[in-house]
Amino acid sequence: MSHQAYELKAEARERVGKGSAREVRRNGKVPAVIYGDKQPPLAIALSYKEIFLKIHAGGFLTTVATIDVDGQKIQVLPKDYQLDPVRDFPVHVDFLRIGKDTEVNVDVPVHFINEEKSPGLKRGGVLNIVRHSVEFHCRANAIPEFITIDLTGAEIGDSIHISSVKLPEGVRPVIADRDFTIATVAGSSAMKPEAVEQPGAEQAEPAAAEAEEEKK
């Protein structure tokens, strides 16, 4: 399941544009917009501290929130945010207004478990992650926090495709025309060599010694 829903308090903004946004930031708040659900966009100002903490806590773009705009509570899903390129603080946030049956496309992180139970990785193989996240289509109130890939039994040369991942009901990948790869287990120069018995090895050493003796 997704992160626990939370609530943010906000103030409506009557003016929009760059000048208004700069004024909001000077007052220690973050400008934002709520759009969607066939309603006009709503410009708001949010607490800088609350938004900063939510963005950097993880799961911000996959967690439904409630925004209290001067007493009116609106359910939303964060869709995008901009950070200052130098100081890394939030400068703007876009929210999608959601209804009871709203469906969305959202990037969900991939988590890997049981790496210690993969024979290929234990031999020194490398987990090559092709996709750190996967875009899914699902209901806005049922976004998974992450999807889990179990590496138990994975050997060198194995590929993990989306078809092998157990997904929650109603969650389906946006890419539907192919069984795309999420990760592979590849060989590496650090792999432990397997013991290979050479045929006739036991006889080779005595024969060489015998030949040397004949030379003498």
Rank of each mutant, 00 (worst) to 15 (best):
T184P: 05
P144D: 09
F89S: 11
V171D: 07
V110H: 03
Y48S: 08
G125T: 10
I51H: 03
P40T: 08
P40G: 10
V108P: 04
Y81N: 02
E194I: 07
F60Q: 05
K216A: 15
I129P: 01
I160F: 11
A43L: 01
D37M: 02
A57V: 08
D101G: 03
H111W: 10
K49M: 03
L61M: 03
D80A: 13
E50H: 05
R178H: 08
S20R: 01
E11K: 14
G187K: 11
E155R: 15
A209T: 12
V16D: 10
A32T: 06
S2N: 10
K215F: 15
L96T: 03
D101R: 05
A186L: 06
S164Q: 13
N105C: 01
M191D: 06
E145C: 09
Q72A: 07
D88C: 08
K29A: 01
F180P: 06
M1W: 10
V91Y: 04
Y6K: 15
I55V: 06
Y81T: 00
D177N: 01
N128R: 03
D70H: 05
K29E: 09
H132E: 08
L46T: 08
T184H: 03
D70A: 03
V24G: 09
N114W: 00
T63H: 03
G58D: 04
A5P: 15
P168R: 09
G58P: 00
M1K: 13
L42W: 02
A211G: 15
V134P: 11
I162T: 06
F146W: 13
N128P: 12
E23T: 14
P206T: 08
G58V: 01
G19S: 09
E210L: 13
D179H: 05
G19L: 08
V185L: 02
F146K: 10
L96W: 01
H111D: 07
I98Y: 04
S189R: 12
I182M: 02
K216T: 13
K29C: 08
I156G: 01
E115Q: 11
I175T: 14
S159Y: 07
P41I: 06
A176G: 01
R131F: 07
H137V: 11
R139E: 11
I149W: 03
V165P: 00
K122T: 02
E213N: 11
D88P: 10
I162Y: 08
A10I: 08
L8E: 04
A183R: 10
V33R: 02
L121F: 05
V30I: 09
V24C: 00
I175W: 04
A208L: 14
A207S: 14
Q198S: 14
R97D: 00
A186M: 12
K18N: 11
V76G: 00
A12Q: 15
V86N: 00
A190Q: 13
P119W: 02
D68C: 02
R97M: 12
R13I: 06
E115H: 03
E145H: 13
S188K: 14
H161T: 15
S2H: 06
G19R: 13
V130R: 00
H3S: 11
T152H: 14
E116V: 12
Q82F: 07
Q203M: 15
A140D: 09
L151P: 06
A142L: 09
A10S: 00
